[in-house]
């Protein structure tokens, strides 16, 4: 419940989502395992999804939930391609460490 008596205010949901998003960002920055990086990416997308749902309820519109569906589809497509790359990585380098492939700099 977003609206009405005793409801969670929209601001609280947004601050919660911002925290979630930042956890995802930190995860991408410090984790070296590709699987965990993908998890962090998922966390960031779902943080956005939470805000969409909450804001949709706040404004009394279905738009937020429609957007959530799109985010689900998008995240699935992204992960499908990403896992393909992860398989390549583990096959060729026998590791999931992202730094193993990193050689371009400058």
């Amino acid at each position: 419940m977003i609206d009405g008596a005793g409801a969670i205010p929209l601001e609280h949901v947004i601050w919660f989502a911002i925290t979630l998003f930042l956890i995802g960002v930190v995860g991408i920055l410090i984790r070296r395992n590709v699987i965990f990086i993908l998890l962090s990416l998922e966390l960031m997308m779902n943080a956005a999804a939470v805000v969409f749902i909450a804001a949709g309820a706040f404004h009394d519109q279905a738009d937020g939930q429609v957007m959530f569906m799109f985010i689900l589809a998008l995240a699935a497509a992204e992960v499908a391609v990403a896992l393909g790359l992860v398989v390549q990585l583990s096959r060729r380098f026998k590791t999931l460490d992202i730094d193993a492939v990193s050689e371009m700099t400058g």
């Binding site: 929209l10 960002v25 960031m44 997308m45 805000v51 909450a54 998008l74």
Partner: peptide, 17 residues
């Protein structure tokens, strides 16, 4: 690019809110 898409999404969510 995934991270930047998430940032765009999150921005859109806040703007929508």
């Amino acid at each position: 690019s995934g991270a930047s898409t998430s940032a765009i999404l999150f921005g859109m969510a806040l703007i929508y809110a």
